[in-house]
């Protein structure tokens, strides 16, 4: 187990410096929209919160962390912040493979396409697409979180944004539940699948839907993906512990204890595996962590994009 203090300070440092937890310049992190024709104007925007984009970096970083855990070198983590922040992040970012990055970019592209197909009017503003700060909130660094959230909310308010279409549960929760409390700004926040209306009969398969904690419990949105998939003639087989009672993927512990994270995800993986159906996730953290243990898992947007 790493000293949480080191991790928190590192992340806080990165967020303060670069507005994202890895200290990666946004230009490098957020490239999925290049060459994607997207509307740039409007008060309703797609807000990715940079979570999917970070997926390859998280995977790489945590691999490295896992190697360090409980080793004498673990305590050097705190030194990471003395490296120029951008450089540290850049290093990690450059280490990630092109394939991984392409996959997570594709998820976002799919989501944009799905929204368009459903007739949802939205714009994409890369300059306004910020990290939500949720990890700081989770780790207990309220001070930095509030500071960051105020910055992000201020930017959005300033740009006259009214509606945010989110793509992952953590960002959705942060914007919908936390921002009004800590920033005083309230936006209409919708998870993208809440806006989809496509149906079709071409799915014809069974999947095991893994509800993320934030959608299943905190936001109680589980039945929507379920309904969407049913609309494509895809059967969501019953998974032990789902919806309100879903089982955590272990992802949130990655940065503190990869070992613990692994133990938790293995338990969840077994439950999902017991269904015998391929797994569908809808959160970059869940997706990454389940992939790490070799699960046959894909993002909700991928399967939806194939059917729609």
């Amino acid at each position: 187990m790493f000293n949480p203090r080191d991790i928190i300070e590192l992340i806080a440092h990165n967020v303060k410096k670069s507005r994202n937890p890895f200290g990666v310049p946004r230009m490098i992190l957020n490239r999925w929209w290049w060459r994607t024709p997207l509307e740039k104007k409007g008060d309703s925007i797609l807000f990715t919160g940079l979570m999917y984009q970070s997926l390859p970096i998280i995977a790489k970083t945590t691999d490295q962390l896992a190697a360090f855990e409980d080793s004498p070198r673990a305590r050097y983590i705190r030194l990471a912040r003395y490296m120029p922040g951008a450089l540290a992040g850049l290093g990690a970012a450059l280490l990630t493979g092109r394939k991984e990055r392409r996959q997570s970019d594709q998820i976002l592209k799919n989501i944009a396409t799905l929204l368009q197909k459903s007739g949802v009017r939205f714009a994409y503003r890369p300059d306004l697409d910020h990290y939500s700060g949720i990890l700081l909130y989770d780790l207990g660094d309220q001070e930095t979180f509030v500071e960051h959230a105020r910055y992000v909310a201020g930017q959005l308010k300033h740009a006259g944004i009214r509606r945010l279409i989110t793509v992952d549960p953590h960002t959705t929760y942060a914007l919908r539940e936390l921002y009004p409390k800590v920033t005083g700004h309230r936006f209409e926040v919708r998870a993208y699948f809440e806006l989809l209306n496509a149906t079709g009969g071409n799915g014809q398969r069974k999947v095991a839907l893994h509800d993320p904690c934030f959608y299943g419990r905190y936001l109680e949105l589980s039945d929507i993906p379920n309904r969407l998939l049913n609309g494509f003639n895809i059967e969501c087989v019953p998974v032990k512990n789902s919806a309100n009672f879903t089982h955590c993927c272990g992802g949130p512990a990655e940065s503190i204890s990869p070992k613990l994270s692994h133990a938790v995800v293995m338990r969840r993986f077994k439950e999902l595996q017991a269904t015998g159906a391929p797994i569908v996730a809808m959160c970059p953290i869940c997706l990454g962590n389940l992939k790490k243990v070799g699960a046959d898992v894909e993002d909700l947007s991928m399967i939806l994009a194939r059917c729609a």
Partner: peptide
């Protein structure tokens, strides 16, 4: 042992149940 606090996954199952 304050580190223990950071084991929590913030998954919310305890609160739910």
């Amino acid at each position: 042992n304050p580190k223990e606090l950071w084991r929590c996954l913030h998954c919310g199952l305890c609160t739910q149940t």
